[in-house]
Structures are given as C-alpha cells and as structure tokens.
Amino acid sequence: MPFGQIAEITGADAFQLEAADTDQVQQALYKRFPALEKRAYAIAVNKVIVKDNTMLSSGSVVALLPPFSGG
C-alpha cells in the first residue's frame, strides 16, 4: 500500500507482488518504479514498522510510508 508522495510514483492503489521478504519487495518495486529508489520511506509489514529485512507470508500487507513535513 503506497501513501503520500510514494503513491504519486506508484499510483494510489494497492497491488499484489510475489516476494519472500521486504528486500525482495523493494527490488521488485525499484525495477517497476525506478524513481522510488531515491525516496525516503518507512516500511510497515502487517501494520508494524520494520527496520530490517522481514520475512513475508502469503497475504502479508506491506505499506510504504513517506515522511510528511507540512503543517
């Protein structure tokens, strides 16, 4: 699920990917959306923020959350 500026690159809707872990998700996304590679974002797997590569299971939901600065 993409949010904010990430959605501007990938399109707003959630989509499905085949990946064993979050590193593979990132690689697949960078191939499809090269502009994403330079972007800052946090990754949440099943609604938990993860810092390191995280194993995924079937149906896992990965969200890419960019930082917002506006106020």
Partner: peptide, 21 residues
C-alpha cells in the same frame, strides 16, 4: 526517529507551499 531515522532532503518531501494542501 524510530519511524524515520534521519531526515529526507527537503526536495524529497515538499511542504504545503510546494505541494499544496
């Protein structure tokens, strides 16, 4: 910082003046 360890560049995350709100 537990969410975003270090800041992105200003250009990476435009503010309301730049991106509208």
């Amino acid at each position: 910082r537990d969410l975003f360890e270090s800041p992105p560049s200003a250009a990476d995350a435009p503010d309301c003046n730049e991106a509208g709100v």
